[in-house]
Amino acid sequence: MIQPDSNYLPTATIETLQQRSQLLRAIRTFFESRGYWEVETPILSRDTVVDAYIDPFVTTWCATEGTAAEGELRYLQTSPEFAMKRLLTAGADQIYQITHAFRQAERGAMHNPEFAMLEWYRLGETHHDQMTFVEALVRQIYERATALCDTSTRLALPETPFERFSYEAAFLQFAGLSALHSTAEQFEQVARDRQISVPSEFDINDCQAWQNLLLVELIEPALREKRAVFIYDYPARQAALARIRQGKDLGPEGVAERFELYLHGVEICNGYHELTDADELRIRIRQQSAIRKQEHRPVLPAESYLLQAMEAGLPACAGTALGLDRLIMLALGKQTLQQVIAFPLERA
């Protein structure tokens, strides 16, 4: 007799996996109907996204048998970003991809080290255009999920357009201080007033550390009550590969033209008005590498095919990376990723 907790069985039911298949089909239909075309890029590559706090899986490629010690380093991709932007440089206009991405130290109800990612890019758009597109996609997937299963207990989307808060506006409303103009002492005072526990190794003089802490402790809990909300224009030091916009009201460093969508407090996607300047990308890679060295993390490549593509001329564009497992989980009214994945890490 088959035991229901046997490790060879999927953690998601067959019915749920069939519903997932239908949602994937709906996603492809959504993109194709809007002129996007599907692409495939390598999962194993010599390039990898350089991020101070994202660790890729690393392996070696051997040209001949028995030469493992002499193999070349290769990375399982944490995102298809680099390769997809190379396609834009080669002449692609609006592309999307459904793929698997891999990240170390990802585990829990909302994480798995191997996860499904939906990523897309379009020439000539901004992050504000992408927010409008994301909302239409999410509503379409929720509508399709409603036709597939009983969603009476699912947390609903708002009937009105998704709210949009700049990072600064969110801090002013939910934390009571400016994210872009406050001093470390002012951040610390808010933490003290709100009785927020500060980690023992915390650098109380680091404004970015305070921003991150207050985001988790004050802003994100408030967003759970909003059902669906975009946060955009992040501090410049959190730019990743987004453009920086300067302005007298935007703090001394400006803001990064990127956004995130939260559904019932769950982060769903990350979108950028994309950086196209190769020189600036080199600077950011050096900055991220310096942080990695300081924190004793493995150094990642300083050169990449993306740098070559940017030097050749990456067109102005915007793009979004969306956690597909999370969106499917919420659309089907589930509580954990394991309920929508066949074989998570523990059973892979």
Rank of each mutant, 00 (worst) to 15 (best):
R224P: 00
P301V: 07
N112C: 11
T183V: 09
D51S: 09
E135N: 12
L172I: 07
P10H: 00
C62N: 13
A222R: 02
R326W: 07
Y8I: 14
T160N: 05
E185L: 13
F82N: 06
A236I: 08
Y272S: 09
T13Y: 01
R258S: 08
L73C: 02
Y36C: 08
Q77K: 03
G35K: 07
E38V: 05
A240T: 08
R192I: 12
P235A: 02
A312N: 07
R292F: 07
P221E: 04
I141L: 12
R25Y: 13
A101R: 06
R326M: 00
D277N: 14
E280M: 05
A145R: 03
I341A: 13
A105H: 12
R46N: 13
E15G: 08
L250T: 04
T48M: 00
E220I: 14
F259T: 03
I283C: 06
A101P: 00
E114C: 14
A52E: 07
C149P: 02
T336W: 06
A175C: 06
E295M: 10
L241E: 04
R164E: 06
N270T: 04
F30T: 12
I244Q: 03
R194K: 15
L300C: 02
R282A: 11
I244C: 08
S6R: 02
M110R: 15
A83G: 03
L155I: 03
E311N: 01
T29L: 11
N7D: 14
R284M: 10
G124L: 08
T29G: 07
R237I: 02
E70D: 14
Y53H: 15
K85H: 01
T320V: 15
Q77M: 06
H127R: 05
R20H: 06
K293N: 07
D51I: 01
P199L: 10
L23T: 06
Y262S: 09
A242S: 14
H100S: 15
P235H: 04
G254N: 04
L300A: 08
Q22E: 13
I268V: 14
Y232M: 11
L332R: 10
P344H: 15
Q294M: 10
D206C: 03
F102H: 05
Y234W: 15
P10F: 01
Q94F: 01
A316I: 09
I27F: 11
D150K: 03
S152W: 07
T89A: 10
L250V: 03
L275V: 02
E225Y: 01
D277C: 09
I27V: 15
L137M: 13
A156G: 01
I95W: 05
R86E: 10
D203K: 13
K248G: 06
W210K: 02
T153S: 14
S79C: 04
F174C: 00
I27D: 07
F343L: 08
Q22I: 00
L215T: 12
V49S: 10
Q338Y: 09
K85N: 02
Q287Y: 05
V266K: 12
D203V: 14
R227L: 14
Q211A: 02
S178C: 04
P199S: 02
Q104H: 06
R154S: 09
A290T: 10
E125V: 09
G108A: 08
S152L: 09
S45P: 02
A302R: 04
A222M: 04
E114F: 05
A342M: 12
R144Q: 15
Q18H: 13
R46L: 08
R28I: 10
A331W: 00
Q130I: 15
Y121H: 01
A256K: 11
A52W: 02
